[in-house]
């Protein structure tokens, strides 16, 4: 999209440069305004307690679908709990709490045009942190400008790889709370320290995985109910 923008304006170099600068600045302001609106929608939620189901899809992790409770409290407290059993919770999942990304103004906003997600037009906005030492290098948000909600977010970090959030909304769209989140993340390959187990070798060949080292994992959370702004005690975090 960005490229086609450049193409359109390539007839006259000077004119086009001026136009680009002009459009970028106006679009950037536009984007900042949009972000503000998104933030405002999200700010309606002070805290919530949600029931949901979490499915984890990581090659080395053979875990069942878990019934989880998700607790949130402004500004950036978030906890996923499995009260009936135990669960591996991806650490980056804390960024399900998008307001943590949007908090503060210490980033540059770049309008990266429009795109479509599942047939819905979205605005693509990139956030570049101003702090050179920040772990987050780049965040890309795909925003539904009609409902002022984030449909998708990609974050690239310096140390923890990149992860992506995809959100589907339903009846809590007014609070910018999704019905379903698909969280894609990078994880190191699991290696059991040597000598910890003597395993039963049943003679079956295990299929070798193509890429050793880093792997991508996926966690899917389906939210069934939300209790919004009813107060969540700090003990839950």
């Amino acid at each position: 999209m960005k490229i086609s923008n450049y193409m359109k304006t390539s007839n006259s170099l000077f004119f086009s440069i001026g136009l680009i600068l002009l459009s970028m600045s106006s679009q950037a302001q536009d984007a900042t305004a949009l972000l503000k609106k998104v933030k405002a929608t999200m700010d309606k939620v002070n805290d919530y307690e949600a029931d949901g189901r979490m499915k984890t899809n990581v090659t080395f992790l053979k875990v069942p679908e878990a019934e989880v409770k998700i607790y949130f409290k402004k500004p950036n407290k978030l906890k996923i709990k499995n009260e009936k059993g135990i669960s591996f919770v991806p650490k980056g999942a804390v960024s399900i709490n998008l307001s943590s990304i949007l908090n503060g103004n210490d980033y540059t906003v770049i309008d990266a045009g429009v795109d479509k997600i599942a047939g819905v037009n979205v605005r693509v906005i990139k956030l570049l942190p101003l702090d050179d030492n920040a772990d987050v290098v780049l965040s890309t948000l795909y925003i539904d400008a009609v409902n002022n909600i984030i449909k998708k977010a990609k974050t690239t970090t310096r140390l923890n790889g990149s992860y992506q959030l995809e959100m589907t909304y339903g009846k809590y769209v007014g609070y910018a709370l999704p019905d379903k989140i698909i969280f894609t993340f990078n994880t190191k390959d699991y290696k059991l320290p040597k000598g910890v187990t003597f395993d039963f070798d049943d003679g079956s060949e295990s299929k070798k995985t193509a890429t050793p080292g880093n792997k991508s994992g996926m966690a899917e959370i389906v939210f069934d109910t939300y209790l919004i702004n009813k107060g969540v005690v700090d003990a839950n975090f």
């Binding site: 090659t59 992790l61 069942p64 059993g85 591996f88 390959d189 290696k191 060949e205």
Partner: peptide
Amino acid sequence: VKGEESQIMQ
């Protein structure tokens, strides 16, 4: 440890 890979089963 299964063959070349480690696993966590729940």
